[in-house]
Write a protein that binds this DNA or RNA. Structure first.
Lengths: 221, 221
DNA sequence: CAAACCTTGTCAGGATGCCGTCAGTGGAGG
DNA sequence: CCTCCACTGACGGCATCCTGACAAGGTTTG
C-alpha cells in the first residue's frame, strides 16, 4: 500500500499525504520531476499521485517515461482548473485518472481507492497440471513450454481432464461431456481422439486405466 | 467496439453517439434506467456512458446493480456541474470515471478511449502488439512501421482484436461487436473482412483458430 | 448532377483440416 | 494361450475457412 505523492507545493503535498495515510496508504513525498521519475522507476507503488507543474522535469514527461519503460502502476494526475487540453494530454500520456485542482480530499481518496481496486482485479486464468498448461484465452495448451494448437474436440477433452486432474474419468462420462447426451458416439471415436491428442502432447499426458477410463495425473510420473 | 449511451435527453444522446461513432465505436442509445440496466446486464459493451439523472431508475442504482451482478465493463458517468458529492458517490458505486456536464465532445472521446485502453490492461495511448500498432486517436494502424489506411469496419475489427490481444474471439462475438445487435450478418461477411485485412496488414497479424475464432497473438510466432 | 470511387455484403468455388468409421494390431489379465 | 479392451493407421465425408468476382449502396469528385 505504498503511495508516492509527487507535488512541489509543500502544503498541498502534506495534505494529500495525510489524507492518503488516513485511508490506509503509506505515503512518500517527492518535490521534483527527476527524483519522482527515479523513484517511480525503481520502487514499487500501488498508487502514484502526480502533479503536472514540477521543477526539473515536467510531470507529463515523467509519466511518459514511466510508461515507455513499461511501468504500469496506477497514476492519478493533478491538473490545473479548467485546463481541459492538459487533461486530455495527461490521459493520452498514460494517466489512469486525473483530478482538477482545487479538489476535496474526500474526492481524491475515493478516486485513489477506485484506481487501486481496479488495478488489483487480475487472476490466473490458466489450468496448470504438472508440465501441462491449458490456456482458455488462447484455446491452446502447452507441454513443457511448447505450445500446441488443438482442434475444438481435442481441446475440450484435455480441458475437461485437466479440470478433473487426478481423477479417472470414464469413457461414458467423457463422451457425454464432449458431445451431448443426445447424439452418442462410438467409444472408438473417443479412442481415436485420445490418440491424436497424445500424438500432439506426448504419451505421458493422458494415462489409461484399462477398464475404467482416462486421467491426467496430478504429478507426472 | 459496442458502446451503450444512457441518456434521456435525446439531443445530448445523439451528439454523444455521433462522437463515439466517429471514434470507431458502435453506439446504442437507451433513454431510461430500466432498459439501461437490462441491456448492460445482458449484452457485452466495451464501454458504457451513463447519465445520472434518468427516468424509471436512477443512474447510480443502475450502476450499483451492474456491479453487484459482477459486471465489470468500464462505465463513464456524466454528472451535473459542481456536484462533487455525486461524483464521489458515483465512483464508490463502481464508476470508472466521470465527466462533469457540460463537457466537450473531444474530452468525452479522449476519456472513453482511455477507459477502454485501461480496461484492457494497457497504459499507453496506442495499442501495441508485436509489429502491429493501433492508434485510436487517428484511427490508423501500422505494421512494421508502415501505416495503412483502413476502412471503418476494418479498423473496428483490428482494434477489437488488438484490445483483446492474446485471446481467441469467436466469430459470433466479433459480429456482435462490429455491427449492432440488431442487424446480424452472415459469417462469410466476417471472413471476407478478415481476408481484406490480411491483404493489407499481412497474413500473420490475425491468426485463425479453426472452430474457435480469430486472435492477434501477443508474441508473433 | 453525373461519373468515378470506395466500401461492403453476397455468392460460388476450392482448399484445408477435422473427425467418425473401419479394419487390423498390440498388449494386459486371467 | 485366449479374450477383451485399447491403440493405430488409413480413408472419406463433411464442416470450416479462404479467395476471387460481382453488385448494391454510399461517398467523393469533377
Amino acid at each position: 500500500m505504498r503511495a508516492l505523492v509527487v507535488e512541489d507545493e509543500p502544503r498541498i503535498a502534506g495534505d494529500v499525504a495525510a489524507a492518503l495515510k488516513a485511508a490506509g496508504f503509506v505515503p512518500e513525498i517527492v518535490g521534483n520531476g527527476e527524483d519522482a521519475w527515479f523513484r517511480g522507476d525503481t520502487e514499487d507503488y500501488t498508487l502514484i499521485v502526480l502533479d503536472l507543474g514540477l521543477p526539473r522535469m515536467d510531470g507529463l514527461a515523467v509519466l511518459k517515461r514511466w510508461r515507455a519503460a513499461g511501468r504500469q502502476m496506477p497514476v492519478l494526475v493533478l491538473t490545473a482548473r479548467g485546463a481541459w487540453a492538459e487533461r486530455v494530454e495527461g490521459i493520452d500520456a498514460g494517466a489512469d485518472d486525473y483530478l482538477p485542482k482545487p479538489f476535496r480530499m474526500e474526492e481524491l481518496v475515493a478516486r485513489a481507492r477506485a484506481l487501486v481496486r481496479r488495478s488489483a482485479g487480475l487472476g490466473a486464468a490458466v489450468i496448470e497440471v504438472g508440465r501441462l498448461v491449458v490456456d482458455p484465452r488462447q484455446m491452446r495448451v502447452s507441454v513443457n513450454g511448447v505450445a500446441q494448437t488443438l482442434s475444438p474436440l481435442e481441446y475440450r477433452l484435455v480441458a475437461y481432464l485437466a479440470l478433473h486432474k487426478g481423477r479417472v474419468v470414464s469413457a461414458h462420462e467423457l463422451i457425454e461431456q464432449l458431445y451431448g447426451e443426445d447424439d452418442a458416439r462410438d467409444a472408438n471415436a473417443l479412442e481415436a481422439l485420445v490418440m491424436r491428442l497424445r500424438r500432439k502432447l506426448g504419451t505421458e499426458v493422458i494415462e489409461t486405466r484399462r477398464g475404467f477410463g482416462y486421467l491426467v495425473p496430478e504429478r507426472p510420473a
